[in-house]
């Protein structure tokens, strides 16, 4: 889908957020960017989205493709919904910015809300919803344009563990059904091991990619009870410790 080649980013403050990062994204991938705070994983995500430009290196889409608005979905750590808008209006936003009317968008909105389990909450405002439901709205908003690439920046980090497990399982099901490519930033080894097919380990100061671990676990909720899952978590922990040492 796209190739990240020796990308570096230094902020005006002088912090070197990212050095020499190279990564190839295949269509249908589920990649986790895993590492402690300050390892440049969010910076890399923003660069992929085109919200920021690298100081060195290149990010090239395959076949010279230029991503159009709506081809990339982005989910932040906070749900970042418009507080004055209903669930439906919040999910409508990306389509509205592309010039669609509410009537034209209605079917897509209803479909995506059903997909994330929010049917019946169309006219609720964000502050009437729980943290987990707000995140569902945020995911629906990212999915409503049927993106090819879904970028997620620690989306479940602020949720309680039970809600997090539920949303992780739902995200896996979504990824299987929709077949879109996901890049998922996290600082949780467990989350990375449960969700991703490819786990990219990153280290801080300067942020760089240390190594990559492949997962052969089945993308299903039962994986959590699979001994192979525990083994993968242990492998990642060891590799992360070695990379940070």
């Amino acid at each position: 889908m796209l190739t990240i080649a020796t990308v570096g980013r230094r902020f005006p403050s002088g912090t070197e957020a990212l050095r020499d990062a190279s990564l190839r994204l295949q269509t249908g991938d589920f990649v986790a960017l895993l590492g402690p705070s300050g390892c440049g994983k969010s910076t890399l995500l923003r660069l992929i989205a085109g919200l920021d430009q690298p100081d060195s290196g290149t990010i090239t889409w395959d076949a010279g493709h230029k991503p159009q608005p709506g081809e990339i979905g982005y989910v932040f750590q906070d749900a970042t919904l418009l507080p004055w808008a209903t669930t439906e209006e919040n999910v409508f936003l990306p389509l509205r910015l592309r010039g669609l009317t509410r009537t034209q968008a209605q079917r897509d909105i209803a479909a995506v809300l059903a997909r994330v389990g929010l049917t019946g909450f169309e006219s609720a405002r964000p502050q009437q919803l729980s943290g987990g439901m707000r995140m569902r709205v945020s995911i629906a908003r990212a999915l409503v344009t049927k993106p090819k690439l879904l970028l997620m920046d620690e989306p479940f980090a602020a949720l309680d563990e039970f809600t997090r497990h539920k949303l992780q399982a739902d995200l896996l099901a979504l990824w299987r059904d929709l077949g879109c490519t996901v890049v998922f930033v996290t600082h949780s080894i467990y989350e990375a091991a449960f969700l991703a097919r490819r786990i990219v380990l990153m280290t801080p100061r300067p942020g760089r990619i240390a190594r990559e671990i492949q997962s052969s676990l089945a993308p299903s909720p039962e994986t959590r009870l699979d001994p192979a899952y525990a083994t993968l978590v242990a492998d990642i922990s060891k590799a992360m410790e070695a990379a940070l040492a």
Binding site: G50, L51, P69, Y74, F76, T80, L93, L97
Partner: peptide, 8 residues
């Protein structure tokens, strides 16, 4: 950022 991403 989100508005920028959607080309607003």
């Amino acid at each position: 950022d989100l508005f920028q991403l959607y080309g607003a």
